[in-house]
Amino acid sequence: MFRLLQIEFIKLWNNTAGKLLIISYFALILCMALIAAIKFDIGPIEFHVADQGVFNFPYIWHLNTWIASGLKLFFAIVIVSMMANEYSHKTLKQNLIDGLSKKEFIASKFLTVFSFSLISTLFVFILSLVLGLCYSDFTEISIIFSDLEYLLAYFVKLIGFFSFCLFLGVLVKRSAFALGFLILWFIMENIAIRFLVWWLVGKEASENIMRFLPLESMSNLIKEPISRFKAVKSMVAQVGEVMNKDYAVHFSELLIVGSWTGIFIYLSYALLKRRDL
């Protein structure tokens, strides 16, 4: 297992473009800390984001994982090209001839995706912990470590999404086209399927089906946290609306994304096995 990771590390780390993208991805996550620096100072109104309670435990886990998961699209470029380059450089063929089995090849890619998701999750955890300890109103241990399921959801979401990217890389073989296909798939899921079912059966059925589609199920894992924010809540209350939204991470949602991960990895392997190179 360690050998497979090493193989993939050599391939990625010696690629200047790949290295740059990986570093900038983590740098962008780090930039989340800059939210703390947002300060409006317009005469009598003084607004400092960090003082508004956005960094309160345990809300910070939800907010930060949600923002960080928005950056995953950026990292998708690395994952897709990591796979598609093997085809365009024909090194996949050479790897197999040199004695890597097709199973090992997919395993090495998946292990890389797994490690990146893990590192990214740890990174977000440490960053949020530091930000929270600096700005949070509550710093009791029990509060700090509540709602940690958002981190698990973040991890599962990343693995699911990157596995999808891997599969697209194997399927399409060209990084640019694979990314195009990813966007096309997103449009298809959100417009074609959502409205087709809505139109044919009804709104409820449409939402039920959407829950099971890969990209939608991934985005369902962590719901948007903005409307949960106290200031927003009070604003909504002033208008006279009451919001009852479920923000929790559900086990069934984790299971759906987990299954998609399995399906994508298996399909990549099956496709690779069937193909003549």
């Binding site: 050599i10 391939k11 010696n14 690629n15 024909k90 790897n95």
Partner: peptide, 27 residues
């Protein structure tokens, strides 16, 4: 040891890096 048609290596890596990778693959 096998060479099929054209030589396939990672173009962005040096000769040495490519050979090190092959060593890892061949264990």
């Amino acid at each position: 040891g096998a060479i099929i048609e054209r030589p396939n290596f990672y173009p962005y890596m040096t000769a040495l890096q490519n050979l090190k990778l092959v060593c890892k693959i061949k264990d």
